[in-house]
Design a protein around this nucleic acid. Sequence first.
DNA 1: CTCATACCAGACTCATTTAGTCGGTTATCA
DNA 2: TGATAACCGACTAAATGAGTCTGGTATGAG
Lengths: 159, 159
Amino acid sequence: MLRLTKKADYGLMALRYLAEQATLTSSNPARSAKDIAEAYHIPPQLLAKILQTLARAGLLVSHAGSTGGYALSRAAREITAFEVIRAIDGPLFITSCITIHGPCDLVGTCTIREPLRKVNESIKDLLNGILISDLVDMTEVDRQGAGTAVAGGLVSIAL
Amino acid sequence: MLRLTKKADYGLMALRYLAEQATLTSSNPARSAKDIAEAYHIPPQLLAKILQTLARAGLLVSHAGSTGGYALSRAAREITAFEVIRAIDGPLFITSCITIHGPCDLVGTCTIREPLRKVNESIKDLLNGILISDLVDMTEVDRQGAGTAVAGGLVSIAL
DNA sequence: CTCATACCAGACTCATTTAGTCGGTTATCA
DNA sequence: TGATAACCGACTAAATGAGTCTGGTATGAG
């Protein structure tokens, strides 16, 4: 089915939210897991775990205490969607031939591994071309009902 | 995790096999599910079901009886990897926001749906650029140890 | 000082999906 | 007419995903 997990979805939404907040507020950009969860109606405990994962991966900085919360560790235009997805969902494998335990038992007989590996790389490049800042920008565009502006760059994929 | 199911893997391998056989034999290109399964050490009954699905989708033609089996319904260069994957794994959704039951319950609050939809389209285009004949060609290239030749086209993706 | 707030960590449950099996039916050809 | 092979749906088991629970630890406000 080739779909992202809900966790990755939630993670992207949270990062986008934090990026947006960072531009709106000058002083303390930190937001608690609870706040973000309420903003999007995400199960709070689940989001908490996701944010912890992202903090462990170095994409977020966390701070405990009453004024604490999470904030982006870098600028929004220096964090890619791929990093987020990879931190949450783990390494990206389009084929089940290539797993974390090395090649599958069809080694030698599997004839489509190499082509699919290239597709894998292409998708990775594609996701690496999407920045958290792009997510914010796109929402703004949608809000204005324009749809003409094109955010982000151009990704060329050679097979 | 963004991975293909094993069924889709098996389906692609089978189609590639049938494409290869079609070029090698002049007369009857049909191969039984059992033969293909044995060639790749795939559970025969499972592959049988996959081939039936592909036949129902119009990608294969089937013929019962002692000399029967499956064959490609079109030329190998007129069948895309996307068609195969879609026939087996169903519609392709990179985000769990967009499901078969329409938009998720986060409608209105989900801020990343549109960007991810575009990624989805890009992946679709990417897979549509890969033909079954490419899979055969690539294997040949690998066999020759070349690696210089590049099969397939170039897919440009605008975000 | 202390307490409410918030992060941290892991075990755990429940639901869904995936992988694979089983049994029986129908079609075709030697 | 019997061997071969496609067809079909129901079924089971394993893996993954989504979400919860419980018990901690840090930190700043009052």
